[in-house]
Nucleic acid binder design. Structure first.
Lengths: 207, 207, 207, 207
DNA sequence: TATGAATGAGTTTTCATTCAT
DNA sequence: CATGAATGAAAACTCATTCAT
């Protein structure tokens, strides 16, 4: 089986894999892990199930790969918070980036949320190590900034959680938001930014 | 089949049903709709599958009943926002109540989030009608308050979404939070309140 | 259990039994033995399943009883073929009676046909003994009549089979006939008589 | 699933399908739709149930396919009644062909009878359209012949019904016939022909 | 590489029947 | 008499996965 080899993938193999991952993302995010069948994924990827399983040895591997890529994606904006920038600006830029993530990658957001929701049972905990590391370092950075009086005193954990919650909400709870708000999602993301950025700016700007 | 009758339930029936619902909440919230089997639910409720199906005609009914009860629970704090109270206080009390909900009913929160996450496909849309109605009326109330200058001008939709997001996050993303924060959940909920209430108070209090 | 006692039934018990049998006839004839559930029968008889099973110890007994009553009904017209009457008239009267049976008891006809169709596996063969006896005696009678030149020479077995086939067809294949003929069943039975009686009269009348 | 494709079947697929259909015909005709389980059919076809379901997506499809093939078979002799032939001969040939059908395909006959018996609930009504069309055209033909005095005046509907009834009876009521007549079925079919053909010839031949 | 074919385990549900009250 | 409650067996199907070609 291909997925057990350690040789580098050919260009064609990489192309196939990304086609499959795209289909899997669609199906997994719409149905959850158990609700998604590899048949449906194979169908969405326009190939036979055995051919799919040639590229990914099982359903788990497919799922893990997606989850891992998503975590990577999630991490980037966090990593980009610069120690050297203006603290309030840096955080606001982070919020904007997270909102863009939600807008541009809602399926990834929902996939990730679904995994957390059921208790992160399927994902290898090792997957979360990079997140942990970056998270801890940014926590330290926020504490520094607060200690230096460059942002108001906030518990950095809860600050980050509330940023995550408010930005990811628009992707994860899209179905509910569409029920309650008449606007299109594109408009809503604009509104979200107009609401959230000033809110956090007000919260964080020292007097 | 018992579940097809419209007669009132006997005491013993209510007892069995609530045993089953308790088990179902546990299993559904841990595995999602598709990941949960009525076998597992029956096992958790310490009864045979057909015995369970004597009380609930199928998996759907069990799920709908839980979802409906959850929505009811979710609605209450929102309904209790009083037109006659102090606006900022009312909203802060609402935040506290939502946080208590997350703390005391995390499984319900996750069940609901799971349904929204995959697009509210399973729930009868009629179920959401009461939510819609209360939501709309509170939106109007928030607009009034803002128009009267009793709270700062905020888009009421986004205000509510951000409150929901931040409060429910502690239940829905518990698995992640436990990974990243060393504290116990009880402590975290206290911290969350200490963070969120001042944040919204600052945001909303007119100068 | 009541059905194992040998004591005579009370009036109330007989009433219950015939209510049940009526419901069972309806359900069995519409769904076949396996397609009919005693739940559905109990529901049609407006009683609980255990109450039904108090009167009939199991599904088989219910079915056998119906089948036995049907055979009884079927036999009567055959028995009434009189040695002393005019042979052609007697046979024509028999045809008319069989047609009336089909018209007035189509469900019984279909129940019986259904049993024969799947090979008379469920019915006790003893049930068919009376039929056998009467059949044989009438075969002998028909042979006599033919030998005496009072009807044309016909194989008596095939004569009876063709009479049975043509008369029962209107009950057993009602669904098909309603598809193909625009007339109401009542009208069709009149037409059937107008067709069949002259046909057999022509066939049997000696020149 | 194989059965969802529209591509032409391979040789091996056709072989498997006909093995399964043969087993299904056996089991369905012996037990009716509800009495037949796909387990029993799979067993009769010497394969596992999922393997069977790989070739036919569900029980219904299997049944429909058999019913459709049977209707096809049933139609052929009717279609072959030739406008140009001698009317009485044509009808007698039709009777002979129908009898051959009953003799050579008794299980198909019983399958079909079983479906009609419970009210043609399972079969798609579209299935019966071809029958309707041919039936109507032959009705018209019989009326023509009668109007031209080439056969005696008969109600064509009832004429066809009585032919169907008498010929199919030997297949559909085989179990009863074997109880009442000592002869083998092969012999009985000969006797049936010797009885029915002259009967209809006498009925139809104009004087 | 790729696919048709097959499998075993599991899932939801139905049903005849029993039992305690 | 009557019923609510429960059960065991089986039915219809699904699905991740494997295998031969």
């Amino acid at each position: 089986m291909l997925s057990q080899r350690s040789e580098p993938l050919t260009r064609i193999q990489r192309a196939r894999r990304s086609e499959i991952l795209e289909a899997a993302l669609e199906i997994f995010s719409q149905n959850g892990y158990r609700g998604a069948s590899i048949n449906k994924i194979a169908e969405a990827a326009q190939m036979s199930t055995p051919r799919l399983l040639y590229h990914f040895s099982d359903k788990e591997e497919l799922y893990s790969e997606l989850l891992s890529a998503t975590l990577q994606l999630w991490l980037e904006p966090l990593e980009q918070i610069e120690e050297t920038g203006d603290p309030v600006d840096e955080i606001c830029i982070y919020i904007q980036r997270k909102l863009e993530m939600s807008r541009d990658h809602p399926r990834e957001s929902r996939l990730f949320a679904g995994e957390v929701l059921v208790g992160i049972k399927r994902a290898d905990t090792a997957l979360f190590e990079p997140l942990r590391a970056v998270f801890d370092s940014k926590i330290a950075l926020l504490e520094d900034w607060a200690a230096q009086g460059r942002i108001t005193a906030q518990d950095p954990h809860h600050l980050l959680y509330s940023i995550w919650a408010t930005t990811q909400h628009y992707a994860d709870f899209e179905a509910q938001i569409e029920m309650l708000s008449p606007q299109k999602m594109a408009k809503l993301f604009e509104g979200a930014e107009a609401h959230l950025v000033p809110m956090y700016r007000k919260l964080l700007t020292p007097t």
